[in-house]
Measured scan of single mutants.
Amino acid sequence: MSIQHFRVALIPFFAAFCLPVFAHPETLVKVKDAEDQLGARVGYIELDLNSGKILESFRPEERFPMMSTFKVLLCGAVLSRVDAGQEQLGRRIHYSQNDLVKYSPVTEKHLTDGMTVRELCSAAITMSDNTAANLLLTTIGGPKELTAFLHNMGDHVTRLDRWEPELNEAIPNDERDTTMPAAMATTLRKLLTGELLTLASRQQLIDWMEADKVAGPLLRSALPAGWFIADKSGASERGSRGIIAALGPDGKPSRIVVIYTTGSQATMDERNRQIAEIGASLIKHW
Rank of each mutant, 00 (worst) to 15 (best):
T179N: 00
L223T: 11
P253R: 06
D269T: 11
I171E: 14
T27M: 05
V117E: 00
V21E: 00
R176P: 05
R92W: 08
E175D: 13
S281P: 05
I256S: 02
V8Y: 15
H156N: 09
G90T: 14
D212Y: 05
R92E: 08
S80Q: 15
D83A: 04
I229A: 03
R255E: 02
A34V: 10
P65E: 04
S96R: 15
R59A: 05
D269N: 10
R41H: 15
Y260V: 04
M268A: 07
P249D: 04
H110Y: 10
G242V: 03
L74V: 06
W286E: 00
A133V: 02
S201E: 00
T178M: 01
P224I: 02
I206T: 11
D177T: 00
T116G: 02
W163C: 08
F17S: 11
P143S: 02
D177R: 01
D99L: 09
I275V: 08
P60H: 14
H24V: 08
I11G: 10
I256C: 04
Y44V: 04
T179V: 00
F14S: 14
M115K: 02
N272E: 07
L199A: 15
Q4P: 15
R159C: 01
D250E: 13
S57K: 12
S201A: 10
H285K: 07
A183Y: 08
L188Q: 01
P217H: 12
A211V: 06
Q4R: 14
R271Q: 12
S57N: 07
S128N: 03
V82F: 07
A266I: 07
A215L: 01
G242K: 00
P143W: 00
Y95L: 07
L89S: 05
I206Y: 15
F70L: 01
K190R: 14
P12T: 14
G43H: 00
I278D: 00
Y260G: 00
T116I: 03
V21C: 14
R81I: 05
K109M: 15
L188Y: 04
E108N: 11
D250Y: 12
L218E: 01
K232Q: 03
S57W: 09
I229N: 00
A40S: 10
S221K: 15
L218S: 02
G142V: 02
R238A: 13
T126G: 10
R202V: 06
P12Q: 11
K53M: 13
G154V: 03
K252H: 14
P143H: 05
R271A: 10
E108V: 11
W286S: 00
S2V: 10
L136G: 00
L199I: 14
S2G: 12
E166N: 09
R241N: 03
L79G: 00
D269Y: 12
T187L: 06
I54R: 07
K71E: 00
M115S: 04
Q265N: 14
R41P: 09
R81G: 05
T267V: 08
M153V: 10
A133I: 00
L223G: 01
L10N: 07
R159L: 04
L223S: 05
I275F: 10
M184T: 00
P217E: 12
M180V: 12
V42R: 03
D174Y: 03
Q265M: 13
I243R: 00
Q88S: 14
L188D: 00
P181G: 00
E195A: 09
D99A: 12
T267D: 12
R238W: 11
L38D: 07
M180S: 15
G85W: 05
E87M: 09
K144H: 14
V82M: 05
D250T: 08
I3N: 13
L100M: 09
Q274L: 14
R238F: 12
S96E: 12
V42E: 04
